[in-house]
């Protein structure tokens, strides 16, 4: 039986980044992070965060680089990137809106808030996963609990935490980001 017609190669969920180059400062930061732990592998998540902060997302090349630095096989880092939604598999917008949809916020109007953002920015509210506008400025995404259940619905715009976000407040947030 000729199997070559029936099997499929494994696609890579991550993007290729042909111009990938690690600046000396980032490499130094990575090496410094590794020293925080008794086992190199323990630094995996911290290195991924550092790379995401620098490049905006995790590429195939970043996975291979980090794995080599930690003396691991690339699959070990690839597992983490695909497991955690906090790691971006492609670039996100300059303004990243993360709307909590865990129980309190879901009851407090998180879905309406999400739909409002999507409508304003021309995105599909029904689509799965992070949605980015065509100009690459905005990304809207549901996330799980942001630990502000008492002031639901809550959200984050990049690293800024917003509580009790009404639709009016949502417009203000967008306005503050140039919309």
């Amino acid at each position: 039986m000729n199997e070559s017609h029936t099997t499929e190669p494994i696609p890579n969920a991550l993007l290729s980044q042909p111009d990938f180059a690690v600046p000396a400062a980032l490499a130094a930061e990575a090496d410094e992070l590794i020293t925080h732990y008794p086992v190199k592998r323990s630094a995996s998540l911290m290195l991924l965060h550092a790379f995401q902060d620098h490049f905006g997302y995790i590429s195939q090349q970043a996975v291979v680089w980090i794995a080599a630095r930690l003396e691991l096989a690339p699959i070990n880092i690839y597992e983490l990137v695909t497991f955690y939604p906090m790691f971006h598999q492609k670039p996100v917008g300059k303004c990243h809106l993360k709307i909590c949809r865990t129980l309190s916020c879901a009851l407090g109007g998180a879905y309406e808030l999400h739909e409002h953002f999507c409508k304003k920015l021309g995105l599909d509210a029904k689509a799965h996963g992070p949605q980015t506008t065509g100009d690459g400025k905005y990304t809207v995404e549901f996330v799980e609990c942001l630990a502000g259940c008492g002031t639901a619905p809550v959200m984050m715009c990049n690293d800024t935490f917003h509580e009790g976000v009404s639709l009016k407040k949502a417009d203000e947030i967008l306005k503050g980001r140039g919309q």
């Binding site: 969920a13 691991l72 699959i75 695909t82 497991f83």
Partner: peptide, 21 residues
């Protein structure tokens, strides 16, 4: 040969080798 692992999460967890290896 640390070649295999699980990617994705929950019901979507999938056994795989690193793509291209």
């Amino acid at each position: 040969d640390d070649a295999l692992g699980f990617v994705n999460r929950g019901s979507h967890s999938t056994l795989t080798a690193y793509p291209g290896r």
